[in-house]
Design a protein around this nucleic acid. Structure first.
Lengths: 185, 185
DNA sequence: AATTATATACCGAACGTTCGTTATAGATGT
DNA sequence: ACATCTATAACGAACGTTCGGTATATAATT
């Protein structure tokens, strides 16, 4: 075995911070190097295809994280209204009151769009479906539930954008807390 | 007089297209040159401070355009419900069914955030206020109307993000058409 | 148990390219 | 003549990337 590794997840977390604030094109190797404490050459040891690999790793990592921290915690057998509230509360925590951006949004600009658009569209569908499934369990018709699922996603993404623009984390909290009642009726 | 100017608004429109698709950091002088048909030296004739000036011009231009095409067309003396519908229809047209991004969103990432955040926050407030004013005229209490104004903005920005990610322009249309009834009750 | 080989972790220095920017000279129209 | 605009070419800096190398720790061989 080699010298103890720095922990790839640690590295990826720091990469994620840079990509989320600056986007794909705006994130430079120098920033990524500074954020991780690894010189550029070392980054290429972890990510042989460079910046593209790092972005992919961040996308996958945050996909897994949001899955385990948010989506997979949904109990579809439980009370739908309670689950919906819990889901939104977890989102507030996951997005740190709206202080961090959604990588799916950020990676739909510039070069990243061409690289990741399939992954991003698929992940968004999955989120909308999770909400829709919960709404159906609450007695809402399938077609309506599906539309409301997308509405929920729209609200999340929009709240993140507006919060990033204004710095008002209370807005994000309020918007997330109000989301369940809004899409339920 | 010199060779007839290309029409600065024409130039700015093409610049806007690049910035909206690639963001500030992702937009390169080469792209901006190709899009406008002006060589770099000519761009620096129109915009002495370079990229930053171009972005500022785009921000101002789209600010004026959205004002004249959307916000200033609101008739606060007319029927609030009708005005709300008309407002949302104009948004669908202004954003070309969601096929173009909101510059306010795009310029909150990377270098642009530091450059334009005050302008952006102020403009977002103005949009939220326009909705709030209309809702008050429809008989909704001020504090509720203000919150719903922000909710409208959140929906617009979110719908633009999700549409950009999925390519589904129908989603943007539907979301905008449903917006008035949603914030009215 | 000591030696050799191998694989991983990491880095310094440089690569060629493109970035945003600028200087200079030449068109072009009044 | 003059102001306006464009063409060419180059600038230093920063870009993403690559190469050659060291250090360390296990695995294999003796």
């Amino acid at each position: 075995m080699p010298a103890a590794q720095k922990g790839k997840d640690d590295v990826i977390q720091h990469l994620a911070g840079v990509f989320r604030r600056h986007g794909y094109d705006g994130a430079t190797l120098t920033m990524l190097s500074d954020a991780t404490g690894l010189v550029k050459a070392s980054l290429y040891h972890y990510f042989p295809n460079g910046k593209q690999d790092m972005a992919r790793a961040v996308l996958d990592y945050l996909g897994e994280l949001s899955k385990s921290e948010v989506l997979d915690k949904i109990d579809y057998a439980g009370d739908p209204r309670r689950e919906l509230n819990a889901l939104c509360e977890r989102l507030v925590h996951y997005f740190q009151q709206g202080q961090v951006s959604c990588i799916l949004e950020v990676f739909t600009l510039g070069q990243a769009k061409g690289l990741f658009q399939d992954t991003i569209a698929a992940r968004m569908s999955r989120i909308a479906e999770a909400y829709a499934r919960l709404l159906q369990r609450a007695g809402i018709a399938e077609s309506v539930a599906q539309q409301r699922g997308w509405e929920a996603l729209v609200t999340i993404e929009g709240a993140l954008v507006v919060t990033r623009a204004t710095g008002d984390t209370k807005l994000f909290r309020n918007m997330m807390m109000a989301l369940p009642t809004r899409i339920l009726k």
